[in-house]
Protein backbone atom coordinates (compact mmCIF):
# COMPACT_ATOMS: atom_id res chain seq x y z
CA UNK A 1 0.00 0.00 0.00
CA UNK A 2 2.66 2.46 1.09
CA UNK A 3 5.05 1.37 -1.67
CA UNK A 4 2.32 1.89 -4.25
CA UNK A 5 1.76 5.41 -2.97
CA UNK A 6 5.43 6.29 -3.27
CA UNK A 7 5.68 4.60 -6.65
CA UNK A 8 2.83 6.63 -8.07
CA UNK A 9 4.21 9.86 -6.65
CA UNK A 10 7.60 9.11 -8.20
CA UNK A 11 6.42 8.20 -11.62
CA UNK A 12 3.80 10.60 -12.60
CA UNK A 13 0.95 12.69 -11.34
CA UNK A 14 2.05 16.13 -10.39
CA UNK A 15 0.54 16.59 -6.96
CA UNK A 16 0.94 20.07 -5.53
CA UNK A 17 2.82 20.09 -2.24
CA UNK A 18 -0.08 21.70 -0.39
CA UNK A 19 -2.39 18.89 -1.37
CA UNK A 20 0.08 16.23 -0.33
CA UNK A 21 0.39 17.86 3.08
CA UNK A 22 -3.34 17.97 3.35
CA UNK A 23 -3.59 14.31 2.42
CA UNK A 24 -1.08 13.43 5.11
CA UNK A 25 -3.04 15.47 7.63
CA UNK A 26 -6.23 13.66 6.64
CA UNK A 27 -4.52 10.30 7.11
CA UNK A 28 -3.35 11.34 10.58
CA UNK A 29 -6.84 12.54 11.54
CA UNK A 30 -8.33 9.26 10.31
CA UNK A 31 -5.86 7.22 12.28
CA UNK A 32 -6.64 9.30 15.35
CA UNK A 33 -10.36 8.84 14.74
CA UNK A 34 -10.03 5.09 14.61
CA UNK A 35 -7.85 5.17 17.69
CA UNK A 36 -10.62 6.92 19.64
CA UNK A 37 -13.25 4.52 18.28
CA UNK A 38 -11.07 1.53 19.10
CA UNK A 39 -10.46 2.88 22.59
CA UNK A 40 -14.17 3.20 23.30
CA UNK A 41 -14.67 -0.37 22.14
CA UNK A 42 -11.82 -1.58 24.33
CA UNK A 43 -13.16 0.33 27.34
CA UNK A 44 -16.53 -1.39 26.97
CA UNK A 45 -14.91 -4.79 26.52
CA UNK A 46 -12.74 -4.23 29.59
CA UNK A 47 -15.79 -3.20 31.62
CA UNK A 48 -17.52 -6.49 30.76
CA UNK A 49 -14.36 -8.45 31.55
CA UNK A 50 -13.97 -6.62 34.85
CA UNK A 51 -17.58 -7.35 35.79
CA UNK A 52 -17.08 -11.03 35.02
CA UNK A 53 -13.70 -11.08 36.73
CA UNK A 54 -14.85 -9.44 39.96
CA UNK A 55 -17.93 -11.66 40.16
CA UNK A 56 -15.76 -14.74 39.56
CA UNK A 57 -13.08 -13.61 42.02
CA UNK A 58 -15.64 -13.09 44.76
CA UNK A 59 -17.86 -16.01 43.81
CA UNK A 60 -15.56 -18.96 43.21
CA UNK A 61 -14.00 -19.02 46.70
CA UNK A 62 -17.54 -18.96 48.13
CA UNK A 63 -18.71 -21.98 46.17
CA UNK A 64 -19.18 -25.13 48.19
CA UNK A 65 -21.55 -28.07 48.28
CA UNK A 66 -23.23 -26.43 51.25
CA UNK A 67 -24.66 -23.81 48.87
CA UNK A 68 -26.66 -26.42 47.04
CA UNK A 69 -27.76 -28.53 49.99
CA UNK A 70 -28.71 -26.05 52.73
CA UNK A 71 -31.22 -23.23 52.83
CA UNK A 72 -30.26 -19.77 54.05
CA UNK A 73 -30.13 -19.23 57.79
CA UNK A 74 -30.26 -15.52 58.49
CA UNK A 75 -27.25 -14.27 56.55
CA UNK A 76 -25.32 -17.53 56.39
CA UNK A 77 -25.94 -21.12 55.41
CA UNK A 78 -26.52 -22.14 51.82
CA UNK A 79 -28.60 -21.01 48.88
CA UNK A 80 -30.80 -24.05 48.30
CA UNK A 81 -34.03 -22.09 48.87
CA UNK A 82 -32.91 -19.26 46.59
CA UNK A 83 -31.78 -21.55 43.78
CA UNK A 84 -35.03 -23.48 44.01
CA UNK A 85 -37.07 -20.28 44.05
CA UNK A 86 -35.28 -18.83 41.02
CA UNK A 87 -35.89 -22.06 39.10
CA UNK A 88 -39.58 -22.11 40.03
CA UNK A 89 -40.10 -18.47 39.10
CA UNK A 90 -38.18 -18.76 35.84
CA UNK A 91 -39.86 -21.95 34.67
CA UNK A 92 -43.23 -20.71 35.88
CA UNK A 93 -42.95 -17.45 33.99
CA UNK A 94 -41.85 -19.19 30.77
CA UNK A 95 -44.66 -21.74 31.12
CA UNK A 96 -47.18 -18.89 31.33
CA UNK A 97 -45.65 -16.48 28.85
CA UNK A 98 -44.50 -19.10 26.32
CA UNK A 99 -47.89 -20.15 24.94
CA UNK A 100 -49.28 -16.61 25.20
CA UNK A 101 -46.27 -15.00 23.56
CA UNK A 102 -46.17 -17.55 20.75
CA UNK A 103 -49.90 -17.03 20.21
CA UNK A 104 -49.49 -13.26 19.99
CA UNK A 105 -46.54 -13.77 17.64
CA UNK A 106 -48.64 -16.01 15.38
CA UNK A 107 -51.37 -13.38 15.29
CA UNK A 108 -49.07 -10.47 14.44
CA UNK A 109 -47.23 -12.41 11.74
CA UNK A 110 -50.11 -14.23 10.06
CA UNK A 111 -52.48 -11.26 10.12
CA UNK A 112 -49.76 -8.74 9.53
CA UNK A 113 -51.78 -6.79 6.95
CA UNK A 114 -54.56 -6.06 9.42
CA UNK A 115 -54.44 -2.65 10.97
CA UNK A 116 -55.03 -4.11 14.43
CA UNK A 117 -52.01 -6.40 14.06
CA UNK A 118 -49.85 -3.32 13.56
CA UNK A 119 -51.38 -1.81 16.68
CA UNK A 120 -50.63 -4.95 18.67
CA UNK A 121 -47.05 -5.06 17.39
CA UNK A 122 -46.57 -1.45 18.38
CA UNK A 123 -48.03 -2.13 21.81
CA UNK A 124 -45.73 -5.08 22.30
CA UNK A 125 -42.74 -2.89 21.44
CA UNK A 126 -43.96 -0.25 23.86
CA UNK A 127 -44.66 -2.76 26.64
CA UNK A 128 -40.99 -3.76 26.52
CA UNK A 129 -40.26 -0.23 27.67
CA UNK A 130 -42.39 -0.33 30.80
CA UNK A 131 -39.96 -0.28 33.73
CA UNK A 132 -39.98 -3.63 35.48
CA UNK A 133 -40.58 -2.03 38.88
CA UNK A 134 -43.89 -0.69 37.55
CA UNK A 135 -44.88 -4.25 36.67
CA UNK A 136 -43.98 -5.18 40.23
CA UNK A 137 -46.32 -2.51 41.59
CA UNK A 138 -49.01 -3.74 39.21
CA UNK A 139 -48.57 -7.28 40.51
CA UNK A 140 -48.64 -6.00 44.08
CA UNK A 141 -51.90 -4.11 43.60
CA UNK A 142 -53.70 -6.79 41.59
CA UNK A 143 -52.47 -10.09 42.99
CA UNK A 144 -50.68 -9.61 46.30
CA UNK A 145 -53.33 -7.27 47.71
CA UNK A 146 -56.25 -7.38 45.27
CA UNK A 147 -56.63 -11.13 45.05
CA UNK A 148 -55.18 -11.61 48.53
CA UNK A 149 -52.42 -13.97 47.41
CA UNK A 150 -49.82 -12.24 49.61
CA UNK A 151 -46.18 -12.50 48.56
CA UNK A 152 -46.16 -15.69 46.54
CA UNK A 153 -44.64 -17.73 43.75
CA UNK A 154 -47.62 -17.38 41.44
CA UNK A 155 -47.81 -13.60 41.76
CA UNK A 156 -44.10 -13.39 40.92
CA UNK A 157 -44.29 -15.79 37.98
CA UNK A 158 -47.26 -13.95 36.47
CA UNK A 159 -45.56 -10.57 36.92
CA UNK A 160 -42.43 -11.89 35.23
CA UNK A 161 -44.47 -13.33 32.39
CA UNK A 162 -46.11 -9.94 31.77
CA UNK A 163 -42.57 -8.66 31.39
CA UNK A 164 -41.28 -11.30 28.95
CA UNK A 165 -44.39 -11.99 26.84
CA UNK A 166 -43.63 -9.13 24.41
CA UNK A 167 -40.12 -10.51 23.82
CA UNK A 168 -41.42 -13.99 23.02
CA UNK A 169 -44.14 -12.52 20.79
CA UNK A 170 -41.57 -10.48 18.89
CA UNK A 171 -39.12 -13.34 18.28
CA UNK A 172 -41.93 -15.67 17.24
CA UNK A 173 -43.26 -13.06 14.86
CA UNK A 174 -39.85 -12.43 13.31
CA UNK A 175 -39.23 -16.17 13.00
CA UNK A 176 -42.53 -16.72 11.18
CA UNK A 177 -42.07 -13.70 8.90
CA UNK A 178 -38.61 -14.93 7.90
CA UNK A 179 -40.09 -18.15 6.48
CA UNK A 180 -40.45 -18.13 2.69
CA UNK A 181 -43.92 -17.25 1.40
CA UNK A 182 -43.91 -20.30 -0.87
CA UNK A 183 -44.11 -22.50 2.22
CA UNK A 184 -47.43 -20.92 3.18
CA UNK A 185 -48.73 -20.92 -0.37
CA UNK A 186 -48.01 -24.59 -0.97
CA UNK A 187 -49.59 -25.57 2.34
CA UNK A 188 -52.74 -23.56 1.55
CA UNK A 189 -52.77 -24.97 -2.01
CA UNK A 190 -52.99 -28.47 -0.53
CA UNK A 191 -56.18 -27.35 1.19
CA UNK A 192 -54.76 -27.12 4.68
CA UNK A 193 -56.66 -24.99 7.16
CA UNK A 194 -55.08 -21.96 8.76
CA UNK A 195 -54.48 -23.91 11.97
CA UNK A 196 -52.67 -26.76 10.26
CA UNK A 197 -50.62 -24.35 8.19
CA UNK A 198 -49.43 -22.68 11.37
CA UNK A 199 -49.01 -25.72 13.61
CA UNK A 200 -47.92 -28.40 11.14
CA UNK A 201 -45.95 -26.40 8.59
CA UNK A 202 -44.82 -23.00 9.82
CA UNK A 203 -43.99 -23.54 13.49
CA UNK A 204 -42.09 -26.82 12.94
CA UNK A 205 -39.90 -25.10 10.35
CA UNK A 206 -38.81 -22.37 12.75
CA UNK A 207 -38.70 -24.22 16.07
CA UNK A 208 -35.11 -23.16 16.67
CA UNK A 209 -35.81 -19.46 16.42
CA UNK A 210 -38.90 -19.65 18.59
CA UNK A 211 -36.78 -21.56 21.07
CA UNK A 212 -34.16 -18.79 21.15
CA UNK A 213 -36.95 -16.40 22.12
CA UNK A 214 -37.96 -18.66 24.98
CA UNK A 215 -34.35 -18.98 26.11
CA UNK A 216 -33.85 -15.21 26.13
CA UNK A 217 -37.06 -14.84 28.11
CA UNK A 218 -35.66 -17.32 30.63
CA UNK A 219 -32.41 -15.40 30.92
CA UNK A 220 -34.34 -12.17 31.42
CA UNK A 221 -36.68 -13.42 34.08
CA UNK A 222 -33.83 -15.18 35.86
CA UNK A 223 -31.88 -11.95 36.31
CA UNK A 224 -34.84 -9.78 37.29
CA UNK A 225 -35.17 -8.44 40.82
CA UNK A 226 -37.26 -5.30 41.07
CA UNK A 227 -40.72 -6.73 40.25
CA UNK A 228 -40.11 -9.69 42.57
CA UNK A 229 -39.43 -7.53 45.61
CA UNK A 230 -43.06 -6.39 45.39
CA UNK A 231 -44.58 -9.77 44.54
CA UNK A 232 -42.51 -12.63 45.94
CA UNK A 233 -40.97 -11.29 49.13
CA UNK A 234 -38.25 -13.41 50.67
CA UNK A 235 -38.18 -16.67 52.57
CA UNK A 236 -35.46 -18.59 54.40
CA UNK A 237 -37.20 -21.88 53.79
CA UNK A 238 -37.41 -24.12 50.78
CA UNK A 239 -40.66 -24.10 48.84
CA UNK A 240 -43.53 -25.93 50.52
CA UNK A 241 -45.57 -26.44 47.35
CA UNK A 242 -48.01 -23.58 47.83
CA UNK A 243 -48.48 -21.35 44.81
CA UNK A 244 -50.04 -18.53 46.80
CA UNK A 245 -49.80 -17.23 50.36
CA UNK A 246 -46.19 -18.32 50.68
CA UNK A 247 -43.16 -16.09 50.01
CA UNK A 248 -40.21 -17.55 48.18
CA UNK A 249 -36.45 -17.00 48.16
CA UNK A 250 -34.62 -16.15 44.93
CA UNK A 251 -30.99 -15.55 44.01
CA UNK A 252 -31.11 -11.93 42.89
CA UNK A 253 -32.59 -10.89 46.24
CA UNK A 254 -29.55 -12.38 47.98
CA UNK A 255 -27.20 -10.27 45.85
CA UNK A 256 -29.03 -7.05 46.56
CA UNK A 257 -29.76 -7.35 50.25
CA UNK A 258 -26.87 -9.47 51.59
CA UNK A 259 -24.09 -7.28 50.15
CA UNK A 260 -25.22 -4.52 52.52
CA UNK A 261 -24.95 -6.72 55.60
CA UNK A 262 -21.75 -6.26 57.60
CA UNK A 263 -20.90 -9.98 57.71
CA UNK A 264 -18.35 -12.00 55.77
CA UNK A 265 -20.79 -14.89 55.32
CA UNK A 266 -23.42 -12.58 53.83
CA UNK A 267 -20.94 -11.17 51.31
CA UNK A 268 -19.86 -14.66 50.31
CA UNK A 269 -23.47 -15.66 49.70
CA UNK A 270 -24.09 -12.51 47.66
CA UNK A 271 -21.08 -13.18 45.45
CA UNK A 272 -21.93 -16.85 45.06
CA UNK A 273 -25.47 -15.90 44.04
CA UNK A 274 -24.12 -13.33 41.58
CA UNK A 275 -21.77 -15.89 40.09
CA UNK A 276 -24.55 -18.46 39.67
CA UNK A 277 -27.01 -15.98 38.15
CA UNK A 278 -24.46 -14.41 35.81
CA UNK A 279 -23.15 -17.78 34.67
CA UNK A 280 -26.67 -19.03 33.96
CA UNK A 281 -27.78 -15.85 32.19
CA UNK A 282 -24.65 -15.63 30.04
CA UNK A 283 -24.73 -19.34 29.21
CA UNK A 284 -28.34 -19.09 28.09
CA UNK A 285 -27.73 -15.93 26.05
CA UNK A 286 -24.61 -17.35 24.42
CA UNK A 287 -26.24 -20.64 23.54
CA UNK A 288 -29.25 -18.87 22.03
CA UNK A 289 -26.85 -16.76 19.95
CA UNK A 290 -25.07 -19.92 18.80
CA UNK A 291 -28.36 -21.60 17.90
CA UNK A 292 -29.33 -18.53 15.93
CA UNK A 293 -26.04 -18.44 14.01
CA UNK A 294 -26.26 -22.15 13.28
CA UNK A 295 -29.81 -21.74 11.98
CA UNK A 296 -28.79 -18.79 9.82
CA UNK A 297 -26.01 -20.77 8.20
CA UNK A 298 -28.18 -23.80 7.48
Amino acid sequence: MMSMDSASSNTGFAVPDGLRGRYRRRRVYSALGWLICGTSFVVLGLALLDILFSIAAGGFPALSTKLFTQPTQGVSGGLLNAIEGTLILTLGSVLISGPIGIGVGIYTSEKRDHFFARVVRFMSDVLVGVPSIVLGLFGYITMVVGLGWHFSALAGAITLSVMVTPYIARTTELALIALPGSLRESAYALGASEASVVFRVLLPSCTGRVLTGLLLAMALSMGETAPLIYTVGWSNYTWDGHLTHEPLGYLTYVIWSFINEPFQSAHELAFAAALLITAFALAITLSSRLIFRYLDKR
Binding site: I51, G223, I255, A274, A281
Partner: peptide
Protein backbone atom coordinates in the same frame (compact mmCIF):
# COMPACT_ATOMS: atom_id res chain seq x y z
CA UNK B 1 -23.22 -9.44 26.09
CA UNK B 2 -23.31 -6.57 28.57
CA UNK B 3 -27.06 -6.64 27.92
CA UNK B 4 -27.22 -10.17 29.31
CA UNK B 5 -25.73 -9.25 32.68
CA UNK B 6 -28.58 -8.91 35.20
CA UNK B 7 -29.07 -5.39 36.52
CA UNK B 8 -28.50 -6.40 40.13
CA UNK B 9 -25.08 -7.75 39.12
CA UNK B 10 -24.28 -4.34 37.62
CA UNK B 11 -25.29 -2.94 40.97
CA UNK B 12 -23.00 -5.34 42.81
Amino acid sequence: LLAAVPSVVFGL
